[in-house]
Amino acid sequence: MLTLTVDNKDKLDDIIITEDTILNIKLDNCSEEINIDVMDNMCLEVFEIDDDTSNEINYNLRSNAQVIVNKLARDNSDVTTVNMSGENASIKYYSNMMNYRDNTYRFVVNHRANYTNSEVYNHCVNFADSEFKFLVDSNIDREAIECFSNQDNEIIDMGNGKNFISPNLIVDNDLINANHSAYIGKFKKDVIFYLQSRGLTEIDCDLLLIKGFLLGKMNLDEKLLEEYTNFIITNFK
């Protein structure tokens, strides 16, 4: 397994995945274009931590490519496009945001080939009174049969933010299985009551629930879990 690291200290070249790879991405305060091309039959796992970025990130998945992206970010206005261009390609994309300023996160997945599979989880905690938007499109071409596409979009509002989700499924044929869901709201009152009834302070509760909400779906080993958790704690105000 090859391990690559990308940050914005140097000029970013296109990344071509020709063997099974772990890709660590750490970007801050930048607005770059990043192209990642995953060749036939390759597995790619991405661990991405971004701070204050508005990047354009493009993935191209060829036949049988398998990709998992574990992304955690603060104040993110990236535009991510995933092209599923080869048959049987599959992607699981976890985007987890902590939001303080006005931001729009745009995600597009294009199913261009048969039997392609995408699962997209977009979670954001909006801490401030700012505006946050998830614009999420799943497009399935007429020629692409038996595809699976799922998107789950959730925003937890901790302040008094203006939050907006636009989940779109644009489907050109019937032979597919597609779902989407959107939730905007606070943490549930009975959940907070349960945790506080065991003595957790309001801050303890918020932090536990935020960590669970942002990291709960991803599969992180102990070391990564610590790194991701530290990022949340550092940016939790």
Partner: peptide, 19 residues
């Protein structure tokens, strides 16, 4: 008793004990 997604028993109880 409700279930709580994403929060493990150990993390929860350790936080509760430390509080």
């Amino acid at each position: 008793p409700i279930s709580i997604e994403g929060v493990t028993n150990s993390e929860f109880l350790r936080t509760a004990l430390n509080a």
